[in-house]
Design a protein around this nucleic acid. Sequence first.
DNA 1: ACGCTCCGAGAAAACGCTTTCTCATTGATT
DNA 2: AATCAATGAGAAAGCGTTTTCTCGGAGCGT
Lengths: 345, 345
Amino acid sequence: MARRNTNRRVGIADVARMAGVSHATVSRVMNGNAAVDPDIAARVRAAAAELKYQPNPVGRSLALGKTDTIGIVVPDLANPTFQAILRGLSIAAAQDGYRVLIADSSEVTSEEAILAGEARRRCDGVVLCAPRMGDAELEELAPTLHPLVLINRTTVASNTPSLSVDYSQGIQELATHLVSLGHRKIAYLEGPLHSASNRQRLAGLEQFQAKHPDIELQFLEAGSNFDSGHDATDAVVASGATGILAFNDLVAMGLLSGLHERGIRVPEDISVTGFDDIPFARYTMPPLTTAAVPINELGSLAWRRMREQMQQSADATEAEESAQDVFEPRIEIRRSTAPVSLPVG
Amino acid sequence: MARRNTNRRVGIADVARMAGVSHATVSRVMNGNAAVDPDIAARVRAAAAELKYQPNPVGRSLALGKTDTIGIVVPDLANPTFQAILRGLSIAAAQDGYRVLIADSSEVTSEEAILAGEARRRCDGVVLCAPRMGDAELEELAPTLHPLVLINRTTVASNTPSLSVDYSQGIQELATHLVSLGHRKIAYLEGPLHSASNRQRLAGLEQFQAKHPDIELQFLEAGSNFDSGHDATDAVVASGATGILAFNDLVAMGLLSGLHERGIRVPEDISVTGFDDIPFARYTMPPLTTAAVPINELGSLAWRRMREQMQQSADATEAEESAQDVFEPRIEIRRSTAPVSLPVG
DNA sequence: ACGCTCCGAGAAAACGCTTTCTCATTGATT
DNA sequence: AATCAATGAGAAAGCGTTTTCTCGGAGCGT
């Protein structure tokens, strides 16, 4: 015996007793599974209503082998990108009667695998955002998490869908935009060093450099949040670059603020670009030129891929090749970028 | 029988078989509950490790009568305030080994009660943010949700803790700040009409009016998001007010942007205040004068109250008077407010 | 050497539900 | 009128744990 019987919630047995039928019958009418005599069904329903009976989800989960819940693991819930993914996912999942369980790893990479595993055990599937997890660890982890959908990561086990943003392409377009405005000295404010999406941007810039050997491209350390952009202000000024590609909008905004404090005008003196097009990007002063990622769509597509995968593993039609969705960012030209001003002198 | 036995996950029975002991013993060593022979314990642990056994949380939940999960229902996950509460809650709860389950009512008030009930059944407790739910409905719902903690609402059933922000006080301080700058015509950009926190601000302004009968106070409809602030720009201009109290920072930012588009300078022509001090408030142009609510703290305190309550209902020490925490906003004077400019002429 | 106590492990019940299995009852068919 | 199929409800097993209950065996005292 597990718990004292005191204070029990109303259970299926109570309804059964009140309606004068067996548990089984109550279950049947609640789920509309098998044919049951209309009179009896009515009696059961009346009893259930009278007692305000609501099936215990834990019991159901155990019997059914599903929890109607999916987990999402994110590195940092303070990041607008993950907030937006979470939101898109949550809304889409809710439409199908699923809930989402959060696991915030607080940027502690070593916890991610554990959290993901735990989430998977509690839920019917996991959406994993783990930008800094090592590739090897991811490869090992992924099979144990199935159904799994990856965000901004891919795995060789090709039956796990992944959604990603083409950061390489986006950053190249932003860089090209700056060049088209006449900028010749460009600096990239790097994101976290081990972040997969930072690596993609670097790769994109390498391609860009190859195409534009005449452009002077510098790399400055920054990070992924507002403060790291703000802190990078001096380095930016020292670099002498006229066009700045920030890792993301947050970093760009921090930089904007730092430049403003030093009386450096944007875009007259320096052009700045962000990345992501978070909701606030259009309201900075000046409004931020950035690469727009349809992030809510990403959240809801994540759910769709998850659902597909849960269905096909229910059908036991295993190992189907899964979709690899890549979102092409669309650059959004606002007023933080402008033609380079004439060199003094 | 519920599911086909194919593809089963490794369960306690497998470990028991491998170690040559009973389920019970495995459970005992996994939980360190009773004394078990060190040799046997070692054998069990070895088997568990070998099979990578991880207890099924659903089974545990059923046996233990707890899920180690709490639910939070929010009206809109896009709102930075709720994002921050969620985050604070999630991090604090995680520290105690609890996870949080999200229920986003998407502003559909009629769904809130249902979502809350469902969340409660799935979880060990619920944090409820339901600013627009009717008082009567809340009174009826609250007892069924226990352990429950309310955000920005109170209930007469005084054994449910509630955390709230003193919006009345905050808005009065902001208004007083404007007055001290010489503003005599002030407009309040109202939030959603049925929102409890909007009502509190109105009440605060009523007190303010009583103290300052000479001030001309106008009420303009707006809403709770950026766009509603932006849309209210014309009305603001038409009102002739020189000091604007926006419902919250989002509305203020929208207004800032609208005013900027019309070439109206802030703070030279019009002073604007927000409410909440969301992270972006300090980075608007100009930085926004606002009332700072320690929102992360609110999230973590919500968890503490929840935990206290779960403990005391475990102790069966029922009906203890619960804490009603009210946070006093601290006004944060930035550059969106300034002395009123001399009337022309 | 016998009986008593104590320790520790297995058997089994319990958590709350779903679903298969089984069987009684009814209505139809020959 | 007697057999058969169909219908529908109850009994019971099963989901994966934890925990109580029970009991065998070892250690102790006399």
